[in-house]
Design a protein around this nucleic acid. Structure first.
Length: 418
RNA sequence: GGAGGGAUGACCGAGAGGCCGAAGGUGCUCGCCUGCUAAGCGAGUAGGGGCCGUUAAGGCUCCUCGAGGGUUCAAAUCCCUCUCCCUCCGCCA
């Protein structure tokens, strides 16, 4: 949810929204609805003030005066009753329109859409394609079974098996350890949430079609632990000096992947269910851009710790989505495809989602909305895809990344006989 | 799944139709005082919206006592629905 006051007062705020390519005329309709609502609000409030005053007098009045005063208050009540539905309607209309407005892009974000992300930096050497792509390798060595998963659950599901499971556990533990060292509180959150949680986190109504519904629509499977993590300080006022409050959530994530038919059909690159360690930070509004840099730095240390060549890209305004004011993706070099593919994402939502969550901080004698940020620490599926390609050996074996060896307890996995 | 009890400000806790956005306490902030500490004394201390005001200090006003509806001139207080928490019984990884 955006700040309506800033929309009408600050030209720069409006420009940031327009750079996200919003529907023509939407902002003007929002402003008109806002103005209409405020006019009606003032009207109704004045009347309500008179009615309140009239009521109060009745309590103090002598018994003889009461009937007349009650009649007067009654009349005001009727008048108010006529105006209230109109006001309520205007409020609903304003809200519906306002919810469609995205968070303004930060001024330094590049213009454009999907293809206009700016490469911020590149690290590591892109290598040549391995003997097998991740999907074939995963199957051959017995780490991934897609065939039986398809029978059980349909396409885009997988059994992760054998040593790959231990590698996942090692990965998660290694990443969690890194986060804990940076002050993140480890969390295993609920993955089933109510509709309200989806709305407040900003996923509904826009992304509803991407989400699995459970229990007759009472509960929804989260596509990322960002959702339950964001609610950890719902309707709270935090102390300035406890920020940033950082959480590292580990959970399974569920995504319908609607509209991706035929895309990334190999292996476990894009599946309906995967595990992920997610970072979430409640930051001081004056320091959220530093926090974004800190989260990205952590992501880089994870990717580079695994020895993966990568680059950091600054997502263009038109591709940011509704909530992010700025977003960096880390893309790793996927040799079989000969290109960089997204493994992590990191966004500053500024106050956009905090406004709906009502998560604030105390600043002196008043309060302010916090800024929320979130970023992938480790999407296990995609990370394994990368490891399958970069750590397969010509003899068909798999070498465990250095940092994971102590946590796995083995350093290589032999190929399986055909 | 069955039977009860409850939800009030940062926290504890009163309040049972008008004088209640809310007693009292704890905590916190500021000031005073005792050579330090503890104690003591005084003052302050909910959030959100709108309007006025120099984007100030401040003022006016509306809303909020778990959420949403209702009754009433008037609701923290009465009625209905929902959510959550607790106790007991059953079941259970």
């Amino acid at each position: 949810m955006i700040d309506l006051r800033r929309l009408r007062d600050e030209p720069g705020y409006r420009e940031g929204i327009e750079r996200k390519r919003v529907e023509e005329g939407l902002l003007d309709r929002v402003l008109a609805a806002d103005e209409a609502y405020r006019a009606l609000l003032n009207d109704a409030e004045q009347l309500r003030a008179r009615q309140n005053a009239a009521s109060k007098e009745i309590g103090k009045a002598a018994p003889d005066d009461r009937p007349a005063k009650i009649a007067a208050a009654s009349a005001l009540k009727d008048e108010l009753a006529a105006k209230e539905p109109v006001l309520a309607e205007a409020e609903v209309r304003l809200r519906e329109l306002a919810l469609q407005v995205p968070n303004p892009a930060h001024e330094s974000v590049p213009d454009g859409g999907e293809d206009d992300a700016a490469v911020v930096r590149t690290a590591g050497e892109p290598g040549a394609a391995p003997a097998h792509d991740h999907a074939m390798f995963g199957e051959q060595i017995g780490f991934v079974d897609i065939e039986h998963a398809a029978e059980m659950s349909g396409s885009r599901f997988a059994y992760l098996m054998r040593e790959a499971v231990l590698v996942e556990l090692a990965l998660v533990q290694w990443v969690m350890g890194k986060l804990a060292a940076e002050g993140f509180t480890p969390v295993v959150p609920p993955v089933l949430v109510r509709e309200r949680a989806m709305e407040e986190a900003g996923f509904f109504p826009t992304d509803r079609h991407q989400v699995y519904e459970v229990d007759g629509g009472e509960l929804f499977l989260v596509g990322t632990s960002e959702i339950p993590l964001s609610g950890l300080h719902r309707a709270e006022i935090l102390d300035e000096d406890q920020l940033p409050l950082r959480y590292g959530g580990f959970s399974t994530c569920f995504r319908r992947e609607a509209g991706t038919y035929g895309k990334d059909t190999r292996g476990i690159f894009r599946v309906h269910q995967f595990d992920k360690v997610e970072m979430f930070s409640f930051a001081h509004p004056d320091r959220s851009w530093e926090e974004l840099d800190a989260l990205v730095a952590l992501q880089e240390s994870i990717v580079s710790g695994l020895g993966l060549p990568y680059r950091v890209v600054d997502i263009a305004a038109g591709d940011l989505g509704a909530a992010a004011a700025r977003k960096y993706d880390i893309e790793t070099w996927l040799p079989s495809e000969g290109r960089y593919r997204e493994v992590t994402s990191c966004s500053n939502y500024t106050d956009y989602s905090a406004r709906r969550l009502a998560t604030r901080l105390r600043t002196g004698k008043s309060t302010e909305l916090v800024h929320t940020l979130n970023g992938t620490a480790c999407a296990v599926g995609r990370t394994l895809v990368n490891l399958f390609e970069h750590y397969q050996r010509p003899d068909g074996s798999f070498a465990v990344p250095e940092v994971l060896i102590p946590l796995c307890g083995f350093d290589r996995v032999e190929p399986r006989p055909p």
